[in-house]
Amino acid sequence: MVAKSDTAIILMNLGSPDSTAVPDVKKYLLEFLMDKRVIDYPWLMRKLLVGGVIVPKRAERSAEAYKSIWWEEGSPLIVLTKQLQKALQHDLEIPVEITMRYGTPSPAETFDKLMKEHPGLKDVILVPLYPHYAMSSYETAAEYAKEIHRKKRYPFELRIVDPFYKHPDYIHAMAESMRPYLEKEYDHLLFSYHGIPARHLRKGDVTGGHCLKVNDCCHVDSKAHSQCYRHQVTVTTELVARELGIPREKWSISFQSRLGREEWIRPYTDHLFQELPAQGKKKLLVVCPAFVSDCLETLEEIAVEGKHSFISSGGDSFVMIPCMNTHPVWVKALGNLCREKMEAVTV
């Protein structure tokens, strides 16, 4: 039991359906896809598209996908986030709670729980568990938490940890979690990140003229990089590859989880699974650094569907490197991120 405290940590992850039942999956998909930062169409258009087309078509298929990866304890993402909470609690002397952007526990539920247990609470450090800035991930998590905090007029200060895509401790943790998998022979290492519509990059470009407009824009210095997902995943990949000593010709970046028919940032992961064997890259490693906890997008989309596609296309071996989950180096890195934010509060 953690003693009464005036400071607390909240780890904020994506969320999950409450069960694999179709009604629960529908409820989750509606909340997720109706988020204006995920599908940024006008409300009525979004309502018609999500409620009338996407969810009715995807709910049963998504429920089956969740069933294929569901653990006895529940949703892998929720279980792993709770395990991370417990591991971090051992490293810190202040309360550590979790919340989800979609589903339960909601930010309001977590804020209320903290206030009940720690009525003298003054500061809450919120850690969105997204290393990279994107409108549909980090931004929606941070802004939603701020909105709930403001509307319900909680007395504590809400302080949010910035994206940590190039933080040395995060890079080191990523590298160490991957290192054992590089000891066996492989032809290629694919860094597969969650995709976003190309339109989101342009919309989030604070300069209005850099992202996807300047040649090699991710490597040309710009204020746009502070909110550019593509730039940030590129930096993460290059730093991790450098720390692990992986030759440039042995790795590449791709983007998964497309939705709809519009252009998303390329190259597409599912296309590469079909193309790499023909290029002689038949022993494949795949890592998904956009996720700190394994979830549907890693356990089913990559480890099951992706593997089947790659092997069916002529590949010989396929290994998905697990997310950092509760790797001790990651737990230490997360603790350091929280301490840095707490120290900034006292300055």
Rank of each mutant, 00 (worst) to 15 (best):
M1E: 12
K4I: 10
I9C: 05
N13Q: 11
L14K: 00
L14Y: 09
S16M: 06
D18R: 10
A21V: 00
A21T: 06
D24N: 14
D24S: 08
E31D: 12
F32I: 04
F32S: 07
L33M: 07
D35S: 13
D35C: 13
K36A: 11
I39H: 08
Y41N: 12
P42Q: 09
L48G: 14
L48E: 02
I54G: 02
V55N: 09
V55D: 06
E60H: 13
E60S: 15
R61I: 15
S62Q: 13
E73L: 12
L77E: 08
L77H: 05
L77Y: 02
V79F: 00
T81F: 14
K86V: 13
A87P: 00
A87S: 11
Q89I: 03
D91R: 14
D91Q: 15
I94N: 01
P95F: 06
I98W: 07
I98V: 15
R101E: 08
G103V: 01
F111P: 00
D112C: 05
K113P: 00
L114I: 03
M115W: 05
M115T: 15
P119C: 09
D123E: 15
V124H: 03
V127C: 04
L129G: 01
S136A: 12
S136F: 03
S137P: 00
A142I: 01
E143K: 10
H149K: 08
H149N: 06
K151R: 05
R153E: 13
R159G: 04
P163K: 13
F164G: 07
P168N: 14
P168V: 15
I171Q: 03
H172M: 15
H172K: 15
H172I: 15
A173I: 10
A175I: 13
A175H: 12
E176S: 03
S177G: 10
S177T: 03
M178W: 05
P180I: 01
E185V: 00
D187W: 01
L189Y: 08
G195N: 04
R202H: 09
G204N: 09
T207M: 13
G209K: 14
C211V: 14
N215F: 15
H219T: 13
A224W: 01
A224R: 04
A224D: 07
S226T: 14
S226D: 14
C228D: 02
R230L: 13
V233A: 05
V233W: 05
L239A: 01
L244P: 04
L244I: 10
P247T: 12
R248F: 08
R248T: 07
E249I: 00
F255N: 10
F255G: 07
S257G: 06
R258H: 05
G260L: 15
R261T: 06
I265A: 01
H271S: 10
F273K: 11
F273L: 14
P289Y: 00
A290D: 05
L299K: 01
A303W: 04
G306V: 14
K307G: 12
H308I: 13
S309W: 07
S309E: 08
S309R: 11
S309P: 03
G315Q: 03
F318E: 07
F318A: 10
C323H: 04
C323V: 06
C323Q: 09
M324L: 10
M324F: 00
T326C: 11
T326V: 12
H327F: 08
W330R: 04
K332A: 11
K332E: 13
K332H: 11
K332W: 01
A333T: 08
M342Q: 11
A344C: 06
